[in-house]
């Protein structure tokens, strides 16, 4: 059974989430390119994975026994880079090279350039299959490491996601945890406002259960719930685990939240400053 995070750990994680969001917005502003909404919806789960859940060591990023993480929604790369920088994989200043020539921080993750990236992604639907391969590889070689993967709800329109779902369940990969960053929006999607723009994955719980997965639903911005779900996933046997992480696209900055246009808009200097203020206030709250 999992014990709740103590106050100290909880505020530590909340602070890291806020810092990660801050770095995302600053980096995209600096680079004049990149995605905002998806990385911000994913931030809390990414922080929880790297600062609470996974067995990783930034000093030895290629350790064979390390837990693996695959960012299948590869366009949220800057969210992962912010968390990796905060975790000590590379200097925070290196974020300023994001998206520029010869940078290790490519627009979409490149496992050959940056130590700490376990798979190259960016073309949607592929990362989850590679994570299935890693979890299967661990089972075949009797290795203890666990594999984590984050997919998007827009990404789940790719048929390959469901091919992977089939095989993970067939091979009973209970060492695999996939998190659906369920922010309900995608780059453009369907026309209209509010729910009419939502991605067509209305019943993810039923869908993943039908594919033979153990499904947990959480508020993906609540570190207590994220930690609890990840601990619970360790106790599941014979099935892969899907955590449906209900999130808000652009989470943490009021004028970005729930607006599909912030999928990849570049914040102006004024927007950056008011976003920073809000994020700081959010931590104090």
């Amino acid at each position: 059974m999992s014990t709740p995070l103590n106050e100290e750990k909880l505020s530590y994680l909340i602070e890291k989430s806020s810092k990660a969001r801050h770095l995302i917005i600053q980096t995209v502003h600096h680079a004049g390119a990149g995605h905002i909404g998806g990385p911000m919806s994913a931030s809390d789960v990414l922080v929880n994975l790297y600062f609470n859940e996974m067995n990783v060591n930034p000093e030895n990023p290629a350790d064979e026994q390390r837990d693996r993480f695959v960012l299948s929604k590869g366009h949220s790369a800057i969210g992962l880079y912010a968390v990796l920088a905060l975790r000590g994989y590379f200097p925070i200043e290196e974020l300023q090279t994001f998206d520029s020539l010869n940078s290790r921080l490519q627009a979409h993750p490149d496992m050959n350039t940056l130590p700490g990236l376990d798979m190259s992604t960016g073309s949607l639907g592929q990362g989850i299959s590679a994570a299935v391969g890693m979890a299967l590889g661990a089972k075949l070689q009797n290795k203890e490491f666990r594999t984590y993967c984050m997919i998007g709800d827009g990404e789940s329109q790719e048929g390959q996601v469901w091919e992977a779902a089939d095989i993970a369940s067939k091979y009973k990969l209970d060492n695999l945890v996939v998190i659906l960053d369920f922010n309900k929006l995608q780059q453009f999607g369907w026309q209209g406002k509010g729910a009419s723009r939502a991605t067509p994955i209305n019943e993810p719980k039923q869908r993943w259960e039908a594919f033979g997965w153990h499904v947990i639903e959480i508020d993906g911005h609540n570190h207590q719930e994220i930690s609890k779900a990840l601990s619970h996933a360790r106790e599941v046997t014979g099935k892969p685990v899907m955590i449906i992480s209900n999130t808000v696209k652009g989470k943490g900055v009021s004028f970005m939240e729930g607006d599909y246009l912030w999928h990849s808009r570049i914040p102006t200097a004024e927007e950056l400053s008011s976003a920073s203020e809000e994020l700081e206030m959010g931590v104090q709250k």
């Binding site: 695959v70 798979m119 299967l136 070689q141 390959q160 095989i167």
Partner: peptide, 23 residues
């Protein structure tokens, strides 16, 4: 022998994941 079913896209990405673990 690993059967991946009739799903070539998944099959090749799974192969990549297997190779990433040293197989």
């Amino acid at each position: 022998f690993l059967q991946m079913g009739i799903a070539e896209q998944n099959m090749m990405s799974v192969a990549a994941g297997l190779a990433a673990t040293g197989l």
